[in-house]
């Protein structure tokens, strides 16, 4: 199987995830777009492992998943903590660095 379509799909999903991070205001949805980007890279890893004929790519994808899990745990805990105090999950609220 030609790997090029897979890679193109991976790039496309990554881009969509990136645009989503920029456009959405709800913190959790932003987080989900980040997860989408991570998944896209996983796809690329697996494709390349098939191309090269060894399992290092799959191992890498595995590790990405583990780290993504840890990251989601902590990130969502933060969002919950912020939400409890500020009653809002909007990303635009953290604008104290404004000039």
């Amino acid at each position: 199987m030609d790997p090029t379509p897979f890679l193109t799909l991976s790039a496309l999903l990554f881009t969509i995830g990136a645009v989503g991070v920029l456009v959405r205001r709800n913190a959790i949805v932003v987080f989900m777009c980040v997860e989408l980007m991570l998944n896209a890279t996983n796809l690329a890893f697996v494709t390349f492992s098939r191309v090269h004929g060894n399992l290092d790519g799959q191992i890498a994808a595995f590790f990405v998943m583990v780290v993504a899990a840890a990251e989601v745990v902590v990130g969502l805990a933060i969002i919950v903590a912020i939400f409890r105090t500020r009653r809002s999950a909007s990303v635009d609220d953290a604008s104290l660095l404004k000039y």
Partner: peptide
């Protein structure tokens, strides 16, 4: 120039992209 510093995370993310 300081007007670029909007304080919004999304503007900074745009710069990263």
């Amino acid at each position: 120039i300081r007007r670029f510093q909007t304080g919004f995370v999304r503007s900074y993310a745009l710069a990263v992209l």
